[in-house]
Simulated assay, not measured.
Amino acid sequence: IFCERRGRLEKSDVTFASDDHLLQIIQRIVSRVGRRVDATSPMVDARLADGSRVNAIIPPLALDGSLVSIRRFPDRPLKADDLISKKSVAAEMIEFLAGAVKARLNVLISGGTGSGKTTLLNMLSGYIPDHERIATIEDAAELRLQQSHVVRMETRPPNVEGQGAVTCRDLARNALRMRPDRLVVGESRGPEALDMLQAMNTGHDGSMTTLHANDTRDAISRLEMMVGMAGFDLPIWVIRKQIASAVHLVVQAARLTGGTRKVMKISEITGMEGDNITMHDLFVFKQTGLNAEGIASGVFMSTGIRPHCLEHLESMGIRLSPGLFDRRSLMTC
């Protein structure tokens, strides 16, 4: 058994008695949440009663014996102050992102597995006004929005006969009929990205989602690919025009050497130049090396570029600190 503590995997002294013992534990876990795992369905992904996510895979797909992964979440969702104190993000970056959420800009959060995308999405959702109706769509419910009017939906896998599956795309289409002010998709993985873009372009400003990508520019390329998976033979310039008009900000999260998590970049999409999407970086984290404990160190910086959306923020009554976007170092860590 391995546990992640402070961003690093550590081997535990606790062990299972045998492979059969582990398989019995897996069967007990998944049966309590109405799922099954056996030779005909050797993989399962589910949410436990306490909100934890569990993934299990058994032989013959798991070559060396059954495998189970459990992702637990803190009792209290991390707030902006927590992320700043952990030096995961600079206060100036939070100020800008909070203003963007309040001003109903559409935000895309990208990063690798375990980089803190959902934590960041949870934190940013805290700046959504309490009177707004929010629809959330997830594969396994992880979001913990604190507003009073939240409509939560979760996908459903097929049954034993392979019937009855409800996909993210099905829920996205349904959510648009529920008069949400904002749509929050826990993670965009496929054709539901097209429905998300259409929602952002048809009055559901302030919507947010996450996806897997290594950079803010890679995130746009992945989004293009996922829209192409929707089955419509759209020219690439049409897809890019949809993205450029729908998405305002891309936030990149990463887990660096030593397990520390950082907001690596905040980029703004500025429009189209020919058939290409144009964007620029507003804030970045530059890694400068490793400290004595082998943990990545560096500096958060403002690039000195004034965002195009600043006028929109001001029109929505959002006043940011003077000099927020001046080129300078924000925090060394």
Rank of each mutant, 00 (worst) to 15 (best):
residue 191 P to H: 14
residue 205 D to K: 12
residue 245 S to W: 01
residue 231 G to I: 13
residue 245 S to Q: 13
residue 212 H to R: 09
residue 191 P to I: 01
residue 268 E to R: 06
residue 247 V to Q: 02
residue 195 D to M: 02
residue 233 D to S: 11
residue 195 D to E: 13
residue 270 T to R: 15
residue 197 L to Y: 01
residue 257 T to G: 14
residue 193 A to Y: 08
residue 270 T to A: 12
residue 234 L to E: 00
residue 266 I to C: 10
residue 267 S to F: 00
residue 251 V to G: 05
residue 236 I to L: 15
residue 234 L to Y: 14
residue 243 I to K: 10
residue 261 R to G: 07
residue 238 V to R: 07
residue 255 R to A: 10
residue 219 A to F: 10
residue 210 T to H: 07
residue 195 D to W: 02
residue 233 D to P: 00
residue 207 S to M: 11
residue 234 L to C: 09
residue 259 G to E: 00
residue 228 G to K: 14
residue 196 M to Q: 04
residue 251 V to M: 11
residue 200 M to Y: 02
residue 215 D to N: 14
residue 271 G to P: 14
residue 268 E to F: 08
residue 191 P to T: 03
residue 263 V to P: 04
residue 233 D to Q: 14
residue 217 R to V: 15
residue 208 M to G: 12
residue 192 E to D: 06
residue 237 W to E: 11
residue 206 G to N: 13
residue 258 G to R: 05
residue 191 P to C: 10
residue 250 V to W: 06
residue 219 A to W: 05
residue 197 L to T: 01
residue 199 A to I: 06
residue 255 R to Y: 05
residue 202 T to N: 08
residue 203 G to S: 08
residue 232 F to L: 12
residue 198 Q to M: 12
residue 192 E to K: 10
residue 249 L to D: 02
residue 193 A to M: 09
residue 217 R to E: 12
residue 230 A to M: 07
residue 264 M to K: 15
residue 271 G to S: 14
residue 198 Q to D: 03
residue 229 M to E: 10
residue 253 A to R: 08
residue 226 M to A: 08
residue 268 E to C: 06
residue 218 D to Y: 08
residue 266 I to H: 04
residue 195 D to H: 05
residue 263 V to S: 03
residue 208 M to K: 09
residue 263 V to K: 07
residue 235 P to E: 04
residue 214 N to A: 15
residue 243 I to Q: 02
residue 268 E to T: 07
residue 237 W to V: 15
residue 219 A to P: 07
residue 262 K to E: 01
residue 210 T to W: 06
residue 241 K to S: 15
residue 267 S to K: 12
residue 243 I to V: 13
residue 192 E to Y: 04
residue 215 D to Q: 10
residue 230 A to R: 03
residue 244 A to I: 10
residue 194 L to E: 00
residue 236 I to N: 06
residue 250 V to L: 10
residue 240 R to Q: 04
residue 242 Q to M: 15
residue 239 I to G: 08
residue 235 P to C: 09
residue 261 R to I: 03
residue 203 G to W: 06
residue 203 G to R: 09
residue 228 G to C: 02
residue 248 H to G: 05
residue 238 V to C: 11
residue 219 A to M: 09
residue 207 S to F: 14
residue 191 P to K: 13
residue 255 R to H: 04
residue 223 L to K: 05
residue 198 Q to H: 11
residue 227 V to N: 04
residue 197 L to Q: 01
residue 243 I to S: 08
residue 264 M to Y: 08
residue 220 I to V: 15
residue 195 D to K: 03
residue 226 M to I: 09
residue 226 M to E: 00
residue 192 E to L: 09
residue 190 G to R: 11
residue 233 D to W: 00
residue 220 I to Q: 04
residue 208 M to T: 06
residue 200 M to T: 04
residue 213 A to S: 12
residue 236 I to S: 14
residue 213 A to Y: 07
residue 260 T to M: 07
residue 257 T to H: 12
residue 268 E to N: 06
